[in-house]
C-alpha cells in the first residue's frame, strides 16, 4: 500500500492543480486490489509461510519428522565457525561478481551490435536466444563433455600444455568452467532486455550528437549508457540474484569439486535434506536469504538516481 501511495503521489503533483485529485484524498480503484489479492495469497501461502516455518525450524534440531527440541541460536553459532560454510559463501559471492560482469559486458556489446543494421540481425538474435530455452542441467552436461573430452583432445593435438588436462579436474581453474557456462546460458536473457532498452532511445539523440561531432564511443558513453541505466540495473540485480543461487550448472559440471573448490551455498543447503542436517542447513538458508536481500538492496541504493529520464 505504501508503495502504491508513493508511486501515485508524484503523478498527482506533476499534474499541477488539484483538479485530478479526488476530494477524499487517496482513493484507489478497488479493482487494483482485486488484481493484487490472488498473487498476494499465493505468494504468502507458498513462499512467505514456508520460509517462516523454515526460519523457525532453524532454531531447533528438527530432522523433518519425529520429535525435536528448541536450540535457540546454536545452529547459527555453529554456522559462523564452520570453515566449509565460509568457503562456500566466498566461492558463491566471488562467482556471482565475476559472472555478472562478464555476462553484462558481453550481452551489452551484442545488443549494441545487433541494434545496428547489420546483415542477418534478426536471425542472429534468434540464434543467440537459444541457450536461454535449454535447461541448465542439459547445458551443463553438454559442456561437461566438451571440457572433459573435446577441449583436452584439441589441446593435445595442437600441443597446448596447460589445457591438456581438463579444467574440470583442476581446483584452481574449475570455477572458470562454471563462469563460462553460466554466462553462456544467461547472456540471452540480458541481451533481450538490452535490446528492448536500446530501441527505446530515440534516434534524434544520436543524430544530434553526431552533428555535435561525437564519436561512436562518445555516443555510447554519453547517450546510450545513461539512457539504459535502468536496464543495466535490472539485469545486474536479476543476474546477481540468479548467480547466487547457482546449483544445476555446478551439479552438471563439477559436482562441487574438485574437493570442495566449487561448492556453492545452494549445494551445501541442499545437502542438509539428505544428510539429516535439516535444521542446520535451514539456518544456512536463512542467513543466505538475508545476504541475498542485502546485496539486492545495496545494488538498488548504489544505483539510485543514476538513470537519466528523457
Amino acid at each position: 500500500m505504501t508503495a502504491h501511495a508513493t508511486l501515485s503521489l508524484p503523478t498527482a503533483e506533476e499534474a499541477g492543480p488539484p483538479s485530478r485529485r479526488p476530494a477524499g484524498g487517496r482513493r484507489v480503484e478497488p479493482v487494483y486490489y482485486l488484481f493484487l489479492v490472488p498473487t498476494l495469497l499465493v505468494f504468502t501461502a507458498f513462499v512467505v509461510v514456508p520460509a517462516l516455518i523454515g526460519v523457525f525450524y532453524s532454531l531447533t534440531d528438527y530432522v523433518g519428522f519425529g520429535r525435536w527440541s528448541f536450540l535457540g541460536l546454536r545452529n547459527y553459532a555453529a554456522l559462523f565457525t564452520d570453515p566449509r560454510m565460509l568457503e562456500s559463501y566466498g566461492f558463491t559471492l566471488g562467482f556471482a561478481l565475476v559472472t555478472v560482469v562478464v555476462a553484462q559486458v558481453i550481452a551489452l556489446a551484442l545488443a549494441v551490435a545487433l541494434s545496428r543494421r547489420i546483415r542477418f540481425a534478426t536471425t542472429l538474435r534468434t540464434v543467440f536466444v537459444i541457450p536461454m530455452v535449454v535447461s541448465g542441467i542439459v547445458v551443463a552436461y553438454v559442456f561437461n563433455f566438451l571440457f572433459s573430452n573435446s577441449l583436452p583432445a584439441i589441446a593435445t593435438a595442437v600441443g597446448f600444455g596447460p589445457l591438456e588436462e581438463s579444467i574440470l579436474g583442476n581446483p584452481d581453474l574449475a570455477w572458470l568452467s562454471i563462469v563460462i557456462v553460466s554466462a553462456w546460458q544467461t547472456i540471452p536473457g540480458a541481451l533481450l532486455v538490452y535490446t528492448a532498452g536500446l530501441t527505446s532511445i530515440p534516434n534524434e539523440l544520436y543524430e544530434a550528437s553526431a552533428l555535435d561531432g561525437a564519436s561512436p564511443w562518445r555516443q555510447f558513453r554519453s547517450v546510450t549508457v545513461p539512457l539504459i541505466a535502468g536496464f543495466i540495473l535490472i539485469n545486474t540485480i536479476l543476474g546477481v540474484k540468479g548467480y547466487l543461487g547457482v546449483y544445476d550448472v555446478i551439479v552438471g559440471l563439477t559436482g562441487g569439486g574438485p574437493g570442495t573448490a566449487t561448492s556453492s551455498v545452494a549445494m551445501t543447503i541442499f545437502s542438509g535434506f539428505t544428510g539429516g542436517d535439516y535444521a542446520y542447513q535451514m539456518a544456512n538458508a536463512t542467513v543466505f536469504l538475508i545476504v541475498t536481500a542485502l546485496i539486492s538492496v545495496a545494488q538498488i541504493v548504489a544505483t539510485r538516481g543514476r538513470a537519466v529520464k528523457l
Partner: peptide
C-alpha cells in the same frame, strides 16, 4: 553422514 563431503575430500586428497 552426507553432510561431510567425504567423496569431495577424497577427490582433493588424491590430487
Amino acid at each position: 553422514p552426507t553432510s561431510i563431503p567425504l567423496g569431495n575430500y577424497l577427490q582433493a586428497a588424491i590430487r
